[in-house]
Amino acid sequence: MAVKLTVPISEEDIRALKVGDQVLVTGVIFTGRDAAHKYMMDNFIKGTCPDSEKETYDVLKAGLAGSVIYHCGPVVGKTNDGKHTFVAAGPTTSIREEPYQADVMGHFGVRAVIGKGGMRDRTLAGCKEHGAVYLHAIGGAATLIAESVKEVLDVYKLDFGVPEAFWKIRVEDFPCVVTMDSHGESLHDKIRTDSQKKLQEILAS
């Protein structure tokens, strides 16, 4: 039975989740991937926010608290009335954000990161420290996930390009699996360790 997670997500909701749980995410969330994470790190976390970026910062600061960052570079179309719409919106590989993720979680109060492939030790420690989880979406299931994106509310830093911009979206019942929880457990670490052991067995045979 899938657990429903609704934005704003409380720390209590997060602490109740364990690796392997299936969840359905509902609410207003943001996409953000390589350029977005580097931008947040350089301008807001390491740097002092330049005036030109103040407006974006305020939006992110208010929007990300208790919310979700989705590692996704969508294919975006426009409807006849000129509104943006997500055509395809599967997760992208999360590990590229490993240098930034824990800091971004802490600074903005992000409760969950959705992506694919899992992340490593720094992010896992960040999840434990800040009360956050890593949610694994189904890589490549772009059309299906686009269906759960009910509305595109806004876009920031579109000059990064369509895939790299921050897209503010409203999702309903976005299906994911918890693969890194806030108690220090990572399904990815377990599978990696087990498969490496098995590899040695196969090579020895």
Binding site: V75, V87, G139, A142, P163
Partner: peptide, 10 residues
């Protein structure tokens, strides 16, 4: 059915 990309990373 919808003629949309299977994956957004084309």
């Amino acid at each position: 059915k919808t003629g949309r990309p299977i994956c957004q990373d084309t």
